[in-house]
Amino acid sequence: MKVKLKVWRQKNRNTAGEFRTYESPALNENMSFLEMLDVVNEELANKGEDPIAFDHDCREGICGTCSLVIGGKPHGPHRGVATCQTYMRSFRDGDTIVVEPFRAKAFPIIKDLVVDRKAFDRIQHAGGFISVRTGAAPDANSIPVPKENADLAMDAAQCIGCGACVAACKNASAMLFVAAKVSHLGLLPQGQPERFKRVKAMVTQMDAEGFGACTVTGSCEAVCPKEISLDFIARMNRDYGVALLKGEPKQIAGGVG
């Protein structure tokens, strides 16, 4: 099979970009979308042209590095998979496929299809962790966790931080990502001491990065390669409200420091 690619090309974040159309060489329909781009790039390189820059790493749907908006949907036509798990058999011979970078003010373009997603890292740095000495691995059942909480926490922890939620949302909102990170720690006993401080810090950082607000459109949930539910955004909204009502923790004078 062969496809026509309409790809966004942009030299760097300071120059204007444009769509350019490329004809693919003959493809195996069982190639992943990224392998198809590799083949196209090889041809471009052989012709002495600049290959198309795109993000990729593990290519097995778990690292969250691959991105791309393929035909208007982040991660391609299927639900619950990343771009690296999208195969050429999902397209027809002769299709024109539009490939764009994730579009958001908080995700500036680095080159072509590669965007800077460090805003997510900064949100994580603001509170997406627990402050304990980890030490040696503790005994597995030393801290009991109710099954329902463990299940929900694991659902939230599936987030690979790829940013498809931001890319799909009409408001470029990062709420699903932040909600997943807030919830997966907030549901577990180890996350409790910093639960409300965490949600406030992460939401404040999210706002500072220039992401939009949630209008409950459901786009994020629909494109999430890990199918993370909007329920978690409600959980974050709830925790944020409780955090506001609790106010700042009182400063304790003295102590042994």
Binding site: V69, K105, G218
Partner: peptide, 15 residues
């Protein structure tokens, strides 16, 4: 403002 450059086509998927 959170999306200064829009996509080339299509409604917001799944909304």
């Amino acid at each position: 403002a959170a999306r200064p450059v829009t996509y080339s086509g299509g409604e917001a998927y799944g909304s």
